[in-house]
Design a protein around this nucleic acid. Sequence first.
DNA 1: CGACACCTTGAGTTACGTCAAAATGAGTGG
DNA 2: CCACTCATTTTGACGTAACTCAAGGTGTCG
Lengths: 245, 245
Amino acid sequence: MATCACEINACVLCEDRIYSGLSKEQVCHIREHLVREMYEPHEVLFREGDEATSLFSLRSGQIKLTTSMPDGRQQILRLVVAGQLLGIETFKAQRYPFTAEALTDVVACKISHNDLRQILELNPAVSLRLIESLSQQLDQAESLIRDLGLKTSLEKVSSFLLSLIPQRGDPGAELPLRLSRREIAEMLGLTEETVSRVMADFARRKIIGSGKGYIRILDRKWLGETAGVRNDSTAAGLRVVAGHS
Amino acid sequence: MATCACEINACVLCEDRIYSGLSKEQVCHIREHLVREMYEPHEVLFREGDEATSLFSLRSGQIKLTTSMPDGRQQILRLVVAGQLLGIETFKAQRYPFTAEALTDVVACKISHNDLRQILELNPAVSLRLIESLSQQLDQAESLIRDLGLKTSLEKVSSFLLSLIPQRGDPGAELPLRLSRREIAEMLGLTEETVSRVMADFARRKIIGSGKGYIRILDRKWLGETAGVRNDSTAAGLRVVAGHS
DNA sequence: CGACACCTTGAGTTACGTCAAAATGAGTGG
DNA sequence: CCACTCATTTTGACGTAACTCAAGGTGTCG
């Protein structure tokens, strides 16, 4: 146990509990495959099109995944937060389909596809966790598709703001906002000017309070209705329930 | 064995090869969990918001997954083709986040989450296949996000048309087009009028040839450039795949 | 202090949506 | 076969949400 290269316990691949049933030697053997890496804000983990041999599990910090067109237009595909995986898309593919850039200080575990494959064959519990993580990511991606495909700028920004609310914790508290207007725009398929206008409007109407680096949700109900959300319990999924024949 | 309820061999969960290493009794035991179901065009497998207990593996046909806003706006999230899974998003969640509707005659295998969980614990190989399938779906979803977020109507339709080209087979051949203009629009975040105009324009410029129920790609290179396809990979997102039965 | 990145606001433009009407085609029944 | 309906597609004229371009404001850091 003491000889493990990766002794941390805060990411999908590192958690103790998924190794129940394995001997300490086996656990160490697995953990030896994990390489711990650190990044600074704006540091790039890899670029779209780079050859992909590994995937990451984010221990702490935040990462944005972006894709861009030849002329420079950029789209944020996902924000990766602590505990989530990153790059499983490449489990079969050879190249990263997006660029990964740290938004904050980041600690991540890196593991090669081959090593992961080995681990999965050894331990079904890890597979289950991986499948759950992937399902959640897919769900999230579909939610973004919904936002991009059929919402107005007002609705998009509302959805975005709601997604900032943590699952647990005081919903009325100040929420840290790490993304610039430009980045919010790149996430929602808008321009930074439009995002700025909408948020200024929301602030004027006391729907949100905003300061530098943070925002505060003042009228969650209104945001929910505007975003087209029916069931307001979840913040991650932004579930839309159909009422329609 | 001969007593298997599901003797077919054309979906992720049914393939022989993933059961290598298991006894015939075990394979039968697994397959007993699979329920084979058939659907007609326009038949709905389940609706957004329905309680989710099962997932499906599509044996043949095509299914569209849609989500809608309270006022009726609709977005197609994905087209499911033979061999793909459907509804793993609900592996943890309780409700389907989209409506699934058959576009053609459909044969699918249905399995409950619990049964699947049991199978996965028994057999790591099935997990691997599932993870690969999920990775591919995620990749596809991200590609659609990219199209929706940063492309113009021209670029969107180009991407879509390119996605119709089957991986194998004559690229210049007539491609069956099962989707209506409205459905293409719902996929691309456009209106049916815009799709109609763009496609009429393409036809006038001899970029495609179009007839009822099919289209023919005449200038693939131009479409690729317009869609902003990166040189070494094809657009994964709007992969529809020409149907066969 | 100046340099620089970020945000806001305004005025003018445009890509796409909306509304409306006509054209086309498939299905049905006489 | 034609006559009918009904859904889909096309085309046109017009409106508008969001983009573009431009300028000015605000905060941060060396």
